[in-house]
Amino acid sequence: MSESLTFHYNVDGEDFTSAGQASVQVKKNLRRLGIPPEIIRQVSIAMYEGEINMVIHAGGGDADVIVSEDKIEIILADHGPGIADIDLAMQEGYSTAPDSVRSLGFGAGMGLPNMKRYTDEMTIDSTVGVGTTIRMVVKLQ
């Protein structure tokens, strides 16, 4: 693979029950490209957590997955409320998710920590009142 390949998805902020469709589709596409299963697991879980966050907090957003020779890059961009304190948001167990979301099994404060856990690089660019862009990289050995 000498050139990079980009998959783009719109994450629907209205439909909580369909959250995860983009991640499941990414998983299928990566499997077709012959990417190793453990890498696929890392990328798709990190992306699902991001997707869920966009649905819970930001009313949806855009997701791009860029596959190149040495890495897979995931870029998640939304126009939600932004994250006021990123260090606090990165702490396991910290969550601002509403009870309605918690009753579905989300909102445990593990989303951002899981995204970091499953990726080699992660940067969060967020402005309160403007939105959040998260860039994650999983290296291909």
């Binding site: 499941v24 299963p37 697991r41 099994g105």
Partner: peptide, 15 residues
């Protein structure tokens, strides 16, 4: 004991 639709996506992604 969770039974909502999201368990299907979680099972798929964690394999």
């Amino acid at each position: 004991i969770m039974s909502n639709i999201n368990i299907v996506a979680v099972a798929s992604l964690t394999d």
